[in-house]
């Protein structure tokens, strides 16, 4: 699926370069006709409308609490006052009424990192097998795995939760007994759920990449006496890094931003609930408490935005491939 929009780019660049070399830039001429001042203004308006909501939230989160709830954020420019108090309050305050998001931030990390690594490793192994083992029904099985992407995860929620309660809960309780400072409400169900829901896409994506690795490379390694482990770690993984990075980023953001899986499979307590769940709860119960909501929302946005600005290329590819997920 990644072929949709990613591939055109490399094809375009040489072509337009050719055009600009030969003659008085015919492409430029066509281009100029297409971009009128009206279009530029329209684009500018859309860009502003799309940016204003986020900007307003960001600005508000730094305004003093009293001002947020009495005056619009646009009045800031007449009376500029900034403070970090809201962030201190939502992240670190120990008072019972504070959102205590620091704890949930840790939860989000504790969910998202294993929730990315586990499906990634499983899928890489499976994709290796799919790509390099010839067995009867291999292609059929691969199509089945791919087709599983169309099962909305809503279809899996109820029975999966029942399975977890029956088979997983006893082990969680036992683990809590054995090591008391691990809470009996654990991340395990959320990890497994995210791993399951991430697998079909991950296998598909990685298989496309791994099956494109030349067979000669792998044959040569086997002749040199490399085992499967060595081939996997020394050849497959390095060569498939772009695909792995794309999927890892997509899956990380998907898990980080997810609300439904967290609502169903985490306990909903500070022990395991991620940021999104806490924020949704705050928005429901204290919908007018804007100094907390604005800062809280931005705390949850920081990580995705960092990923977005830092790793945009991989992010776009993962997103395009994964847009049918879930």
């Amino acid at each position: 699926m990644s072929s949709v929009a990613v591939t055109p780019d490399p094809e375009i660049t040489p072509k337009s370069a050719d055009a600009s070399l030969g003659g008085t830039t015919r492409a430029d001429r066509v281009k100029r006709r297409l971009t009128s001042p009206g279009a530029t203004i329209a684009a500018l308006i859309i860009a502003v409308i799309w940016t204003i909501p986020t900007f307003g939230l960001l600005l508000s989160s730094f305004r003093p609490a009293g001002q947020i709830s009495t005056t619009g954020w646009w009045t800031f420019f007449g009376d500029p006052q900034l403070t970090l108090a809201n962030y201190g309050e939502v992240l670190f305050s120990g008072s019972a009424s504070s959102p205590q998001l620091g704890e949930y931030f840790v939860n989000s990390l504790a969910i998202a990192i294993p929730g990315t690594i586990i499906p990634l490793v499983l899928a890489a192994l499976a994709a290796y097998a799919f790509a390099w083992v010839k067995f009867k029904g291999s292609s059929t099985l691969f199509v089945v795995v791919f087709a599983l992407q169309i099962v909305p995860l809503q279809m899996a929620l109820i029975p999966l939760l029942q399975l977890f309660v029956t088979f997983l809960q006893p082990f969680q309780d036992a683990l809590h007994e054995a090591v008391p400072f691990i809470s009996e409400r654990q991340f395990l169900p959320v990890w497994i759920a995210h791993a399951i829901f991430g697998l079909p896409l991950a296998i598909f994506l990685l298989h496309n990449f791994i099956s494109a690795i030349p067979a000669d490379v792998i044959e040569a390694a086997r002749v040199d006496g490399a085992g499967h482990g060595q081939i996997f770690f020394r050849i497959i993984l390095p060569l498939a890094t772009p695909a792995i990075a794309s999927f890892a980023i997509f899956q990380f953001l998907w898990v980080w931003n997810d609300l439904l899986v967290a609502l169903v499979f985490s306990s909903g307590t500070p022990d395991t609930a991620p940021l999104t769940q806490r924020l949704a709860e705050l928005a429901g119960s204290r919908g007018e408490n804007w100094e907390r909501l604005t800062a809280g929302a931005f705390v949850s946005l920081v990580v995705p935005l960092l990923v977005f600005f830092g790793l945009q290329r991989y992010f776009v590819r993962g997103l395009l491939a994964g847009s049918a997920k879930g």
């Binding site: 307003g56 980080w256 997810d258 999104t276 949704a280 804007w290 946005l301 995705p304 935005l305």
Partner: peptide, 23 residues
């Protein structure tokens, strides 16, 4: 230009909901 309009895609729907509740 692209980045500005594409950015909402990266943030969670929960985050987007709070942004718009504020709007």
């Amino acid at each position: 230009y692209k980045m500005l309009v594409f950015m909402p895609m990266a943030i969670s729907m929960v985050g987007a909901s709070i942004i718009w509740r504020f709007m």
